[in-house]
Computed example of a mutant assay.
Amino acid sequence: MQQVGPAPREGRKLKVTEFFLHVGGLSTSTSANSDTGRSRSGTESTDMASVALTSTPIPTPVASAAASDESRARLSVKSVGSGTTGQVDGAWWPHSRGLVEELSNLLPLLLGRLGRVERVSYRLGEWDPAARKADVGGERIRLAGFNSKAAHTVDVLAEQHRVTLLVIPPDTAPALAPSVLEAAGTDGNADSIAALLAAAGLSN
Rank of each mutant, 00 (worst) to 15 (best):
E101T: 09
V88C: 01
T85I: 14
L197T: 02
G86E: 09
D69E: 08
A49W: 04
N105V: 11
S79K: 11
A194T: 06
T46M: 08
L21C: 15
S45Y: 07
Q2D: 13
I193A: 08
I58M: 07
E159H: 10
G201S: 03
A7L: 10
R142E: 10
L99A: 00
R38Q: 15
S34G: 15
E10P: 14
S34W: 01
G25S: 14
F146W: 00
V23T: 11
A32Y: 03
W92N: 01
G24R: 14
F20Y: 05
A130N: 01
G201D: 02
D155F: 12
P170A: 03
T36E: 11
K133E: 14
F19C: 03
I58C: 13
L202I: 06
T17K: 09
T85Q: 14
D135I: 07
H95R: 09
S179F: 05
H22F: 08
T164Q: 00
P61T: 11
P178N: 02
G115N: 02
P6K: 10
A184D: 04
W93C: 12
G98F: 03
R113F: 09
F20Q: 08
E118H: 09
A200S: 04
E159L: 05
R116V: 06
Q87F: 10
V100R: 09
K149N: 11
A63N: 15
S50E: 12
D89K: 05
T17F: 14
P129A: 01
A65P: 10
Q160T: 05
A7W: 10
T164V: 01
T60A: 13
K133M: 07
A183L: 04
S68K: 05
S29P: 14
T153H: 00
N147E: 12
L181H: 05
R72T: 15
S148C: 13
G125D: 05
D128V: 08
A183D: 06
A131R: 14
D135L: 13
R9D: 02
L110P: 00
P178I: 07
E139N: 13
A63T: 14
T56G: 11
S148Q: 09
A175Y: 13
A67C: 03
T164F: 01
N204G: 11
R132F: 10
Y122S: 04
A7S: 13
D47C: 07
P61Y: 05
R123V: 14
I193K: 11
A66D: 06
T60E: 06
Q2S: 15
L176W: 11
V100I: 07
R116W: 10
T60V: 08
K149F: 08
L143F: 03
S104Y: 12
G90V: 02
A151H: 07
H152N: 11
R123C: 13
F20D: 15
E182S: 14
A134S: 00
N147H: 03
S68I: 02
F146Q: 15
Q160D: 07
V51H: 08
E18D: 06
R142Y: 01
P129Y: 00
G90Q: 12
S55N: 12
T54F: 15
R123F: 08
